[in-house]
Design a protein around this nucleic acid. Structure first.
Lengths: 145, 145
DNA sequence: ACTCAAGTGGGGAAGAGTGGGGAGAAGTGG
DNA sequence: CCACTTCTCCCCACTCTTCCCCACTTGAGT
C-alpha cells in the first residue's frame, strides 16, 4: 500500500494571525513541507508532497489549448499554497483559502486516508448531520464495502 | 520531477512607473532574467528561461504552412519581452502588454504550475466567480482529483 | 500531585511591497 | 554637432506584513 493513512477528527482554532495548529498525530506523516489547496465541498485539502506530485503530473498532461482546462488549472493552482509549519506545528492559511472554505475561529481538521481536510466548524457539523442519516445508504452506493 | 511549480494568488499593484513587484516566493525559481508574453485569456504569461525554451520548442513543431499558426506565432512572439527585475524584485511591464491585459493599478499574480500569470484585478475576480461554480464539475471531468 | 506534551496567544525583529527622488541614457530639434 | 527634453533605471526610505521565538494554559499519563 502506498501513501499516508490519516484518520480522526480534531477541533482546533484559527488564531488572529491566520494560523492553525495541525494535530500532532499528523505531523510526522506530513513531513516538514506540504500543500494546502481548495478542495471539493468548500473545504481545504492538505496534501503530502508525494500526493501533490501526482496531482501535478496529471495537470501537466492537460493540453493548454482547451479553455476549460486552462481555467481549471488556474483556479486550482492559484488556490494552493506550499506550507511549512513553525516550531509549534502551525501553518498560516492565506486569506483566499480562508475565504473559500469560510473559515472562522473554530475549524475541524479531519483525517481522510491519503489526505487531510480543513473545515469550518459549523459547515462540518451541518454536513455531518446530513451524513449520519445517509450513512448506510451511502455505504451501499459506494461499491464493494 | 522537472520544471517549476508556481502556486498561489497575490494581489499587488502596478505603480505609476509601470512596475510590478513579483511575489518573493517566485523570485528564486524565476531567476535573474525571464520572459513576459501575451497569454491566453487576456492575461500575461511569465516564464522562467527553461520553461520558455520548452514553449519555443513546441512552437517550432507547428507547421509554417498553416496561416493560423503563422499568425499565432507572430502575435505571441512579437509581444514577448525579456525582463530583469530591479533590486526590489520589480519588473517594468511595457505599454503594449499592459494594454493587452487591461492592467490598471491593482493586479493579481497567479502561480499556475510551470508559469506565472498576471491579471487585472477585476478581470480575474470576475473570471474566478464563474469558476467557483464549476469547480467540482471540472475537477471530475478534467483531472479526476 | 507532578510532569510532559499539545494547543494557543502575543511581542518583536526581519523581510516584503510600495512610493518617489535623482542620475544617466536615449531621442529630438535647432 | 550641440543643447534640450524625455524616459529609463538605480537607489533610498517608509510602512505593513510575515515569521520566529518565548510563555501561558490545559489535559493526559505516571
Amino acid at each position: 500500500m502506498s501513501g499516508a493513512n490519516f484518520v480522526g477528527e480534531y477541533l482546533h482554532t484559527l488564531d488572529a494571525k491566520g494560523r492553525i495548529a495541525l494535530p500532532a498525530k499528523f505531523r510526522e506523516t506530513l513531513g516538514p513541507k506540504f500543500i494546502v489547496a481548495r478542495g471539493l465541498d468548500k473545504c481545504l485539502f492538505v496534501y503530502p508532497p508525494e500526493e501533490w506530485d501526482q496531482v501535478m503530473e496529471k495537470l501537466k498532461t492537460i493540453p493548454i489549448s482547451s479553455k476549460d482546462a486552462r481555467h481549471f488549472t488556474r483556479y486550482f493552482l492559484s488556490g494552493a499554497t506550499e506550507a511549512e509549519p513553525d516550531k509549534q506545528g502551525r501553518v498560516v492559511i492565506p486569506q483566499n483559502l480562508r475565504d473559500y472554505a469560510g473559515l472562522n475561529k473554530d475549524v475541524f481538521i479531519l483525517g481522510v486516508g491519503s489526505r487531510i481536510e480543513i473545515w469550518d466548524k459549523d459547515a462540518w457539523e451541518e454536513t455531518k448531520l446530513g451524513l449520519e442519516a445517509e450513512f448506510s445508504v451511502l455505504a451501499e452506493s459506494v461499491a464493494g464495502i
